[in-house]
Design a protein around this nucleic acid. Structure first.
Length: 926
RNA sequence: GCCGGUGUGGCGAAAUGGCAGACGCAACGGACUUAAAAUCCGUUGGGCCUAACAGCCCGUGUCGGUUCGAGUCCGACCACCGGCACCA
């Protein structure tokens, strides 16, 4: 396919250096206590472990399709920083692994009968080959795979920690379940077990869940988009089932508050805050107007949650979710007198009980999709019962309607149609009264006004602005026991079980209907081989087919659900710290070093400042902005509470790379046919050009379209770098020899000689200025992750250096150090040649990876004469040359005297002259 | 509807409140070549004016404001992208 002449022999250079790095273990990240060979370049630079820098990529799901050009975008950015941080002097941890449990491998297994392990291993091999071809400086000795029993053993172990813990509200921390205190009325073993099981962080619940018949599994709320499965887009229905849940909701407050500890983008933090959805308000009890004699106190009042207790006087009806547990009990035998037919549902002849049953059936039949789609018209039915508004003893009708969600708050609301859009819509639908209790500001309509105003028609609240009215009414309710202040969260507990094969089995067994943990010594629980991986369709997981496996020798039965794909990715960044450990998920010393930055020894003099807590930099796509990041933070906090890790947050700084679109500006997809295959780009332009282009396209976080012509641009730049150092005639000879001996003969590289202009000459002032300008710009840009402008600074340097009458070896050597993070293969190759030819100028180094990063010398950047633009009335009218140290007066005089400025001043009075030394002069005329 | 982001040449983009368009792509012209590719040199926001040099005007989504000076700060709006969405 390639008709383009190769700019330089990357096809020989790139494998050569990857092989070298591999053999030398150049990018091995050393743990405290590791013995490091004295020949290793790390040992030659550092006498003991310097501060750590942990740079993490979101590990990929190795799909059968292989890598696409979006994956390497983040990986390239992190690799450049990893190489830069190494050069600065950090001990860099930069690992890679595989998030390999998941549906595609399983669905392939269902189709072909092939074990998912086989597919998974093949996919990993493809991914690894493609990722390694890019020359990333990962420590491959730390590679992990979530489907490896040596890995998921610890995923199961962490699950047992969750299972064996409760959240102590007094300390706001997870604690071992053994510390759980029992109330005096909990006495029997059975009671204690039930009490305990109801408080574990991992618990079993019979809950209405999102059942996807097509996938044969339940899905978490987050995995359901518009009533369809996120994977595959299949219909999802609500169905009550027994499921494992994780009690993430108890961490809502800490997950919210600790966002302040970390350096994430405001929009990302907002997404997390939104998801957690904290709202402050009050719970208020509305007693039933006609108490049920047989019921206890709790069943004779309806509790609602409201963020606007100040509008209590405007509550003209109540609504319960159709599934609300009190509905059945409160329905009277007959409709109250004068009940409008419109309130009685579809059939006015029915009794209240029949009307409610009919409405419930109607609501349950709606799929989630319809519930959101049909949001325009609200529906509901009167229950026939009334409640009493505690503030004014008014009887108000109780309705059920599916615009009230069972799963949020108490599943019941007080409706204040004047000041809530949804209630107003519903009230108009059924002709319910609307009472203004908040006066809108002048010029605004009070009906439908939902923001803060001033209370009216509200007795003792009248005249109070909304915030004060809220306080007053809350105090009033609390005094009378009619309600209390309350904080609610949108966040729900995490549905943690799946009816799938290719996931971590739960380390749980069942005995007489009770669950118990499987001993740690029996981990890992490995999924058994099956003849048929198909879902059973009944909701029974495929593992149930393995009858022998399910039956344990002690008579108990294994749990047959498996964990969701998120499980493995919730803690993988911790396993990288100590991936081979078979006694613990991670050695505590390694954990403290890499996560807390606790130094194991003396810091290297002049080494970087205090490490940040947690992963220093985490780069990945926005698609994980909520789920993965929230789940991982949750697990981390539990491990923190149980003293398994030393930081409250896992990821200190997080950056989302922007999506790469196809050349047509559309999202890349097979159906559009605009997918760019990195293998082809690599074959034609090499890894260095690929890396460079991915970074040169634009800022990392922006969405941007791919352009293969853009790759050619940076490829040409690398060609110019090559020709800056390599003699053209020797290159021609090299190419001729290649045609004879074959293109893959690496020994031919020896025929290449350095360019004659490359000399061990003292650099000229201008050359030093060009070099140090580049050092400064590249360094600043790397610190700020502005890779595109750093590359352009390298280009500016090369464009200038091509003009020089001679090319001082020392200057070129330093330039190659700047190039190294971006185009490491080319930089290593050229540096090796340069150092061999000019040992006195460069010094010997087996690799650029640990050479100290150059520092710019400001004295080379000063100018003796500077040019300043001169404006008249804000318009550019000329330029002046002045000495760099010239004071404002001198500059002003020069500006006024300038021949190009004079004509504009003629006959006008000068009002003011603004002089910004080193920047600009602006003369304003009267 | 709510929250967040982004609007700059033909295209990707760059610009601590101080010369808008660095760097790169594409295009055009030239050198080299029998020719092409590659490479090298030059031009390239729009308009006006000039034989030319030079010079002038307009221009960073729209409208307004602050400032000696605004792509950048403030206010209102428009468009596109992403997230959430009956969360009481």
């Amino acid at each position: 396919m390639s008709t383009v002449r190769r700019q330089y022999p990357f096809h020989l250079i790139e494998p050569k250096w990857r092989g070298f790095w591999d053999r030398q273990r150049t990018f091995r990240a050393w743990n405290p206590g590791d013995s490091i060979s004295p020949e290793h370049p790390f040992a030659q630079r550092h006498r003991c472990l310097p501060p750590k820098f942990y740079i993490l990529d979101m590990f990929p799901y190795p799909s059968g399709a292989g890598l696409h050009v979006g994956h390497p975008e983040g990986y390239t950015a992190t690799d450049i920083l990893a190489r830069y941080k190494r050069a600065i002097g950090y001990n860099v941890l930069h690992p890679m692994g595989w998030d390999a449990f998941g549906l595609p491998a399983e669905q392939y297994a269902i189709k072909t009968g092939q074990h998912p392990r086989v597919t998974t291993e093949a996919n990993i091999a493809t991914f690894k080959r493609q990722i390694q071809a890019l020359g990333f400086s990962y420590d491959w000795e730390r590679e992990i795979d979530t489907t490896d029993p040596g890995y998921f053993r610890w995923t199961q172990w962490i699950f047992l920690r969750l299972y064996g813990s409760w959240f102590n509200p007094a300390t706001q921390r997870a604690e071992p379940i053994e510390t759980l205190p029992y109330p005096p009325d909990i006495v029997t073993d059975g009671q204690r077990r039930a009490y305990r099981d109801a408080r574990r962080l991992a618990y079993v619940a019979e809950a209405p869940v999102n059942w996807c018949p097509e996938l044969g599994t339940v899905l978490a709320n987050e995995e359901v988009i518009d009533g369809k499965s996120e994977v595959g887009g299949f219909p999802v229905v609500r169905k009550p089932m027994r499921q494992w849940m994780l009690r993430i909701t108890v961490y809502a407050e800490r997950l919210l508050r600790d966002l302040d500890l970390i350096d994430w983008s405001p929009s990302l933090k907002d997404m997390q805050r939104n998801w957690i959805g904290r709202s402050e308000g009050a719970e208020v009890h509305f007693p039933l107007a006609d108490p049920i004699p047989s019921a206890d106190a709790g069943e004779n009042a309806i509790t609602v949650f409201t963020t606007r207790p100040d509008t209590l006087f405007g509550a003209t009806y109540m609504v319960l979710a159709p599934e609300h547990r009190l509905v059945d009990g409160l329905i009277p035998g007959a409709w109250p007198a004068h009940t409008p037919d419109a309130w009685k549902g579809a059939n006015p002849a029915s009794t209240p009980r029949e009307a409610v049953a009919a409405y419930r059936a109607f609501a349950a039949a709606k799929s989630d999709l319809e519930r959101t789609d049909l949001a325009k018209e609200k529906t509901g039915v009167f229950t026939g019962a009334f409640a009493v508004n505690p503030v004014n003893q008014e009887r108000i009708p109780i309705w059920i309607a599916d615009y009230v969600l069972a799963s949020y708050g108490t599943g019941a609301i007080m409706a204040v149609p004047a000041h809530d859009t949804r209630d107003l819509e519903f009230a108009r639908q059924y002709d319910l009264p609307v009472r203004i209790v908040v006066q809108a500001p002048v010029g605004k309509e009070s009906i439908g006004y939902i923001d803060d105003g001033v209370s009216v028609n509200s007795a003792f609240l009248d005249g109070l602005p909304t915030p004060e009215a809220k306080q007053r009414i809350a105090a009033w309710l609390e005094e009378r026991g009619a309600g209390y202040r309350m904080i609610n969260y949108k966040l729900r507990d995490w549905l943690f079980s799946r009816q799938r094969y290719w996931g971590e089995p739960f380390p749980i067994a069942w005995r007489q209907g009770q669950h118990e943990s499987i001993p740690e010594s029996d981990l890992p629980v490995v999924p058994p081989p099956l003849a048929d991986y198909k879902p059973t369709g009944s909701g029974e997981p495929p593992l149930a087919r393995a009858a022998q496996w399910v039956q344990r020798p002690d008579g108990s039965l294994r749990e047959t659900n498996t964990m969701p794909q998120w499980a493995g990715s919730c803690w993988y960044y911790l396993r990288y710290l100590d991936p081979g450990n078979s006694r613990a998920f991670c050695d505590p010393v390694a954990e403290r070093y890499w996560m807390s930055g606790d130094p194991p020894g003396e810091p290297t003099p002049g080494a970087p400042s205090k490490p940040t807590p947690g992963v220093d930099l985490y780069v990945g796509g926005t698609e994980h902005a909520v789920l993965h990041l929230l789940y991982a933070r949750f697990w981390h906090k539990v491990l923190f509470d149980l003293n398994c890790v030393s930081t409250p947050e896992p990821f200190f700084k997080l950056v989302n790379q922007g999506l790469i679109l196809g050349e047509d500006g559309q999202k890349m997809s097979k159906s559009r046919g605009n997918v760019v295959n990195p293998d082809e780009i690599l074959a034609q332009y090499g890894a260095d050009a690929f890396r460079l282009y991915e970074m040169f396209m634009g800022p990392l976080e922006m969405v941007k379209p791919w352009s293969t012509q853009g790759v050619e641009g940076v490829y040409r730049f690398l060609g110019r770098v090559w020709r800056l150092l390599v003699d053209e005639r020797s290159e021609q000879e090299f190419e001729q020899a290649q045609t004879l001996a074959g293109a893959d003969d690496i020994s031919l590289l020896d025929r290449l000689r350095l360019h004659a202009l490359v000399q061990d000459a003292p650099p000229a002032q201008g050359q030093l200025k060009a070099l140090h300008t580049a050092i400064r710009k590249v360094t600043e840009d790397l610190e700020a992750m502005r890779f595109n402008t750093a590359i352009s600074a390298l280009m500016v340097f090369v464009n200038e250096a091509m003009e020089w009458p001679q090319r001082p070896a020392a200057v070129l050597g330093t330039f190659l150090q700047l190039l190294q993070p971006f185009a490491p293969h080319l930089a290593e190759e050229l540096y090796q040649r340069l150092a061999a030819a000019f040992p006195a100028a460069l010094g010997a180094a087996s690799t650029l990876a640990y050479l100290p990063w150059p520092k710019h010398d400001p004295s080379f950047l000063v100018e003796s004469v500077v040019e300043l633009p001169v404006q008249v009335n804000g318009r550019l009218r000329g330029r002046i040359q002045v000495p760099a140290q010239a004071g404002p007066d001198e500059i002003q005089a020069a500006a006024l005297a300038s021949p190009s400025i004079q004509p504009f001043l003629a006959g006008k009075a000068i009002r003011k002259v603004i002089v910004v030394p080193g920047k600009i002069v602006n003369i304003t005329l009267a």
